[in-house]
Every structure is written in structure tokens, then in C-alpha cells.
Design a protein around this nucleic acid. Structure first.
Length: 269
DNA sequence: TAAGTATGTTAAG
DNA sequence: TTAACCTACTTAC
């Protein structure tokens, strides 16, 4: 379930379990075996999360770069680690814990120089305290894309995915098809602040909740529900259902190969 | 048992 | 713009 908040959470979990410890890194599945062998005897120094990218830093100036993609997952547990279940790309063990990584798009050993190059391609990450929203603002101003498509563009906003895109636009009542250049500064500031709020909440809670107190089920007289992704939201994957705010039917459409959800009434053009 | 689906990215055309 | 890829789970037959 990987938008940026999941990656920051994972960084914290890897950190808590292994930072400062000698670890054994293996690849039961085999696809990371050659790199894992190069890490024999190394300690995991600390971790970093930038957008949807996770870095496990080792004490030899190298890092394991992990990107979960659409399906990747990590399972943590206490030692002794059981026989690997399914295809475990990378298992980290040490300090009384283990962590199994399955299904990532990327799991590769790289130098800190290569790490810097990866980070260099990313826009500001609302979860990070060192993020500079001006960089995102400049891209909005100079692009001809829609705001909906730029929110998914990792060079513009790092860590934002399909759920946060849909929800933040809904909360700001912005139509996803609006040209990014036409977005006013005040609207952008509101979107950015909301991303910061929602995504940091996501890190804290491990789920995405975006429904404001005044629209909560008990206030609106509807049954509480947990969406399939684990939280409660306004529009993401609620196509064909009634908008919590105005009662219109939530819509779905493809935007550059990804499914976009929005309320045609609350988010009028 | 097979097909479909998913919070993503990249490379090919 | 399309297809391919990584895996596990749900739904259809």
C-alpha cells in the first residue's frame, strides 16, 4: 500500500529495528543475492525516506535503494525468522528482528552518489521538514499539465499518489482538470499545507483518513465504513456512490493511465 | 483454477 | 499512449 507515508513509516521501522546494528542481508528469492553478498559484515547505519523511495544506509558508503512500486510490501518480525514465505527479495536480520521485502519495483545496492542522483530527480516531499514548496510552485507555473496530473508527478510532488491526489483536490474543491498554471497562489498554498497535514497523519496512523470532523459518519447519520485501503476518504474508489458533502455521484475517469476520482459538483470546473 | 485488481514506474513505440 | 513488470489477494467460473 505504498504512497509516501508508507515509505516514511517503513524507514522508521527499519531504523527502530536495525539502526546501528550488524545485520545479515540475504535474498531467499535470489534476485538480490549478488548485492546481498557484498553486504556481509556490514552494519546498517540509518535509513532515509524521500517521496516513495527508501534508502537503507550501510557503513561502507553504500545504500540499498528500495521502491515498492504497486505491490511491494515489507513484513517485520522478531527473530528467529521463519522459513521465507513466498518470494522474499531481501531479508534483513539482526538485533533480534527481521524484515522481509517482497515484490518491490526496485531493490538495488548503490553508492551515495547514486542515491543523490535519485533524490535529485524528485520534487519536494510534503512529509519532510526540509521540503521546499517553492520548487513545486514553479513547476505548476511553468507547466501546461492539469493540476491532477502534476500532483502525481514525482518531480513536482514527491510521495503523493492516487489517493492523496484525489483527496487533497476534493478537500480544496479543485477540479482535477484545471490547468496548473491557472491555480492561484493561495490555492496552491492550501493544497501544499493540506498535503503536509494529511500525509504526516498518514505516517502517524499508518492509514489514510481524510474526512473532516463535520462529515464524519456519526455527524452525517451514515454508517461508518472503512475503505478497502484501510482508511476513510471522500472520493478515492467511491465511484458510483454518493458524495458525503453534496450527495452527487462520485465519478471515475482515466487520466494518463491512472484512475482519477472526483465529485463533479463539489469540484466544478 | 483462472481472471481481475491494486496506493507505481519505466521503456518502447 | 501502451505494455511490461513486481506479488498477493479477491472474485468469477
Amino acid at each position: 500500500m505504498p504512497e509516501g507515508h508508507v515509505i516514511h513509516r517503513l524507514a522508521g521501522e527499519y531504523d527502530a529495528a536495525f539502526a546501528g546494528s550488524a545485520v545479515s542481508v540475504t535474498s531467499p528469492q535470489g534476485r538480490f543475492a549478488d548485492s546481498a553478498a557484498l553486504l556481509i559484515g556490514r552494519s546498517l547505519v540509518d535509513t532515509d525516506a524521500y517521496g516513495k523511495h527508501l534508502f537503507l544506509n550501510f557503513d561502507d558508503d553504500r545504500a540499498v535503494h528500495v521502491h515498492l512500486g504497486l505491490y511491494g510490501k515489507v513484513a517485520f518480525g522478531r527473530s528467529p525468522a521463519p522459513e521465507p514465505v513466498g518470494l522474499v527479495r531481501m531479508r534483513v536480520e539482526g538485533n533480534g528482528s527481521y524484515a522481509d521485502l517482497r515484490g518491490p519495483t526496485a531493490c538495488e545496492l548503490m553508492s551515495q552518489k547514486q542515491v543523490a542522483a535519485v533524490i535529485d530527480r524528485l520534487g519536494p516531499d510534503p512529509i519532510r521538514t526540509d521540503a521546499d514548496p517553492e520548487r513545486a510552485w514553479v513547476r505548476l507555473q511553468t507547466s501546461r499539465s492539469s493540476i491532477g496530473s502534476l500532483l502525481m508527478d514525482q518531480r513536482t510532488f514527491a510521495g503523493v499518489g492516487n489517493i492523496y491526489r484525489a483527496e487533497v483536490l476534493f478537500r480544496a474543491r479543485v477540479n482535477p482538470y484545471r490547468e496548473s498554471r491557472a491555480v492561484r497562489r493561495k490555492t496552491f498554498d492550501g493544497l501544499w499545507d493540506d498535503l503536509v497535514t494529511l500525509m504526516r497523519l498518514g505516517v502517524r496512523d499508518g492509514r489514510i483518513d481524510t474526512v473532516r470532523p463535520e462529515h464524519e459518519p456519526e455527524v452525517m447519520g451514515r454508517a461508518p465504513r472503512e475503505d478497502r485501503h484501510g482508511g476513510e476518504v471522500y472520493v478515492y474508489r467511491r465511484d458510483g456512490q454518493r458524495c458525503f458533502v453534496c450527495g452527487s455521484l462520485v465519478r471515475l475517469e482515466q487520466m494518463q493511465g491512472r484512475t482519477l476520482y472526483w465529485c463533479p459538483r463539489c469540484q466544478r470546473r
